[in-house]
């Protein structure tokens, strides 16, 4: 105990787990966005041949799991744990998909921060020697989220420019104790931050302070500066939250403007549907798995800090006038196996 931890919130993996394969399934609108050519599969119908959207979301996750196993040439028997989460009540998208996946299963809820929450936990399981190989996944679906959190999908309402569209996507990775990189080298676990925003149509403003807190904590814990990373990527702050995060970081003395982007901005062409950009567990999962993962493999980026961000409210809490607590978890992903630890 001791050498794997630095500072208050950060873990430095002593034997960094390798991300050996990724797979993604996304919806039609995501498949028409700027990252279209990177996804493994684009579904054309939001029901994906099922009778409900909830079933469709589970199927997207299940098929991504099957695809990632195929890519890495593994069977279910060789996977020791699966960590996965989504936005639906009682995590049904993940656990219903896991009915078909004979692997010890952890369901995670971190709202849209689930993907990096899973990577951090999966990394700990592998680096701690509790598992040789784990699956980490996350999913979200526009229609399932919309009907649970907001309005029926056919209701004719105008969204404010701060609103975000829940991404229809599932992204899955396999973490393994050894293998070719990129490697998961560090994780900074965020704490819950509530800065008093209560508008569920403005999650970017609610989540930006949590992202900033985690990023600064990461720099303080590790002694790194922003230029240690080629790119810092937040999960789904979208255009509103990203601007706030940039300014908050600058105020604290960390200028990241030349190396900072956000998955919620990357995934869509801006229009009246998407407003500020994408959100949802699947947003950072799909963008990392499809777009950044191969860029890390190729060496276009050598070090990347992925910070998935989650707004932890429910329809009940915001109807009761509660403000929106938020969380962000950061993981460092590096192309090369770090030579010197600590």
């Amino acid at each position: 105990m001791g050498e794997k931890r630095v500072g208050r919130n950060t873990i430095i993996f002593s034997q960094p787990p390798a991300i050996v394969a990724t797979a993604t399934t996304v919806g039609k609108k995501e498949g028409e966005g700027p990252l279209a050519k990177y996804f493994d599969q684009v579904i054309q119908d939001s029901l994906y041949g099922e009778s409900t959207w909830e079933k469709a979301e589970s199927k997207m996750l299940l098929e991504s799991v099957q695809r990632v196993l195929q890519k890495a040439n593994y069977t279910f028997d060789q996977i020791h744990f699966m960590f996965s989460g989504d936005l639906l009540n009682q995590l049904t998208a993940s656990s219903f998909a896991a009915r078909e996946i004979p692997v010890p299963f952890y369901g995670l809820f971190g709202a849209c921060s689930t993907f990096t929450e899973g990577l951090a936990l999966g990394g700990m399981a592998v680096d701690g020697g509790f598992a040789q190989r784990v699956l980490v996944g996350a999913s979200s679906h526009y229609q399932t989220a919309e009907r649970q959190f907001r309005y029926p999908t056919e209701l004719g309402v105008q969204k404010p420019p701060t609103a975000q569209r829940t991404v229809t996507a599932a992204g899955v990775v396999i973490l393994e104790s050894d293998g070719p990189g990129p490697y998961l080298t560090a994780a900074t676990i965020g704490r819950v931050i509530d800065m008093g925003i209560n508008d569920p149509m403005d999650m970017g403003s609610a989540m930006a302070p949590a992202a900033v807190h985690t990023i600064i904590q990461h720099f303080q814990d590790t002694g790194r500066k922003p230029d240690y990373y080629d790119l810092i990527v937040t999960g789904d702050l979208a255009s509103v939250g990203k601007n706030l995060a940039e300014d908050l970081l600058k105020k604290e003395g960390y200028d990241v403007t030349d190396r900072y982007t956000d998955c919620g901005i990357l995934i869509y062409k801006p229009d009246a549907d998407t407003q500020a950009g994408g959100s949802g567990c699947g947003c950072s999962a799909a963008v990392f798995c499809s777009y950044f993962y191969p860029l890390l493999q190729e060496g276009k980026y050598r070090r990347l800090l992925l910070v998935s961000t989650g707004a932890l409210m429910s329809p009940t809490t915001y109807q009761q006038g509660e403000t929106i607590p938020a969380i962000a978890h950061a993981v460092a992903v590096e192309r090369d196996y770090p030579e010197e630890m600590g």
């Binding site: 420019p161 701060t162 509530d194 800065m195 008093g196 925003i197 403005d202 403003s205 930006a208 302070p209 255009s239 509103v240 601007n243 706030l244 300014d247 500020a276 403000t323």
Partner: peptide, 18 residues
């Protein structure tokens, strides 16, 4: 809201796209 929350909320709201 605490003072810190008030300050942030006002700052963030002022910068929101209209």
């Amino acid at each position: 809201l605490t003072r810190e929350q008030e300050v942030y909320k006002r700052w963030a709201n002022a910068r929101k796209p209209k």
